[in-house]
């Protein structure tokens, strides 16, 4: 990292830490969700942005993570923080397994298969065979954790810092993964899978692994999200959740780590503003933004910022 990047990072972190003391508990809760979405979007971006595999069903992995946490807390009394690694591990395996048959599917067909997964998931969760675990249509209610060690923080503030710590960890790990050998292999497969194969990249392994890691990220986000909203139910994980994630990575920026944050801010706050117009308005806006970004800003907010910065630097050098 350059010195300037380090400074920017430090400022952003300082702001992020100060935030819960500057805004109301409800706003803090909303920013917790931003962190949750950012992790989920990073997961989807690893798969779709970096590896080029289109998923329209990532809401399914978010749901699996959320249910893992809810069931562990509700049925087994596991402390909330200990459920995250379990949720992540379960989703890693689930993603890897789903990725195996998906290996044979190119772009469009994978989109189709994952779309089918996303659409049918709520029905699977409601099924009476799993009802005693999932709580059926009613879902599961869980309680919000208090701050430990007698820290003078409200539960919302504590959960925000907890999520922030998890997010920082996940982002740092993703950065290392994507900048390293595996990350380069993932991009190589996206851009030219035959060439990647002839260069000795084990495409099958890398693609399944991408699927697994991606699902793990989204699953951890789901687990955090469940703790934050204190409730899981099948109908909150319908196909539109998966579509929200797609909106997030397209708007934030494909194949960009910071893009996940811009995307998360977008999907958290834009509906809040638009909601006042009509119940349907947030979705109409999402749809229009999707089309506009594909036509006008295919690199998303992250790409646009990068370009603006480059232009500004070029201008400064010329002056």
């Amino acid at each position: 990292m350059s010195r300037r990047q380090l400074i920017v990072l430090a400022v952003v972190l300082a702001l992020a830490c100060a935030l819960p003391f500057l805004v109301s508990n409800y706003r803090t809760f909303q920013f917790t969700l931003v962190l949750v979405y950012a992790i989920a979007l990073l997961g989807l971006n690893i798969l779709t942005g970096y590896n080029g595999q289109i998923s329209l069903g990532h809401g399914a992995f978010y749901a699996i993570g959320a249910y893992c946490t809810a069931i562990l807390m509700d049925k087994f009394g596991v402390p909330y923080w200990a459920t995250l690694p379990v949720a992540g591990a379960v989703c890693l395996v689930a993603g890897f397994l789903f990725g195996l048959p998906a290996l044979r599917l190119e772009g469009l067909y994978l989109a189709l298969a994952t779309f089918a997964l996303g659409v049918s998931l709520p029905q699977l969760l409601k099924n009476h065979h799993v009802e005693k675990w999932t709580g059926g249509v009613q879902g599961i209610v869980i309680s919000k954790p208090d701050a430990p060690f007698g820290l003078p923080l409200s539960p919302d503030q504590w959960l925000y810092f907890f999520s922030l710590a998890v997010a920082i960890l996940m982002f740092a790990l993703a950065r290392n993964l994507l900048r390293g050998r595996i990350g380069r292999a993932m991009v190589a497969i996206r851009d030219h899978h035959i060439a990647a194969e002839t260069m000795g990249v084990d495409t099958a392994m890398v693609k399944s692994l991408s699927f697994g890691v991606s699902a793990m990220y989204t699953g951890v986000a789901g687990a955090l999200g469940a703790i934050a909203v204190q409730f899981v139910a099948p109908d909150s994980f319908n196909i539109f959740l998966s579509i929200v994630f797609l909106v997030g990575i397209v708007v934030g920026g494909l194949a960009s780590i910071t893009g996940a944050i811009y995307g998360a801010l977008f999907i958290q706050f834009v509906p809040n503003i638009a909601d006042e117009l009509s119940k349907a308005a947030p979705w109409a806006i999402f749809g229009v933004f999707l089309i506009l970004f594909v036509y006008l800003m295919p690199a998303g907010v992250a790409g646009a910022l990068r370009m603006a910065l480059a232009r500004w630097q070029a201008k400064r050098q010329n002056d």
Binding site: I54, G107, I243, A280, W283, G287, I291, V294, P298
Partner: peptide
């Protein structure tokens, strides 16, 4: 393909919400 899929999904979302 990704761009086209996104446009299709956008269309889905727009038609759905406009109807609502």
């Amino acid at each position: 393909v990704l761009a086209v899929v996104v446009v299709f999904i956008a269309l889905l979302v727009i038609l759905n919400s406009v109807t609502g």
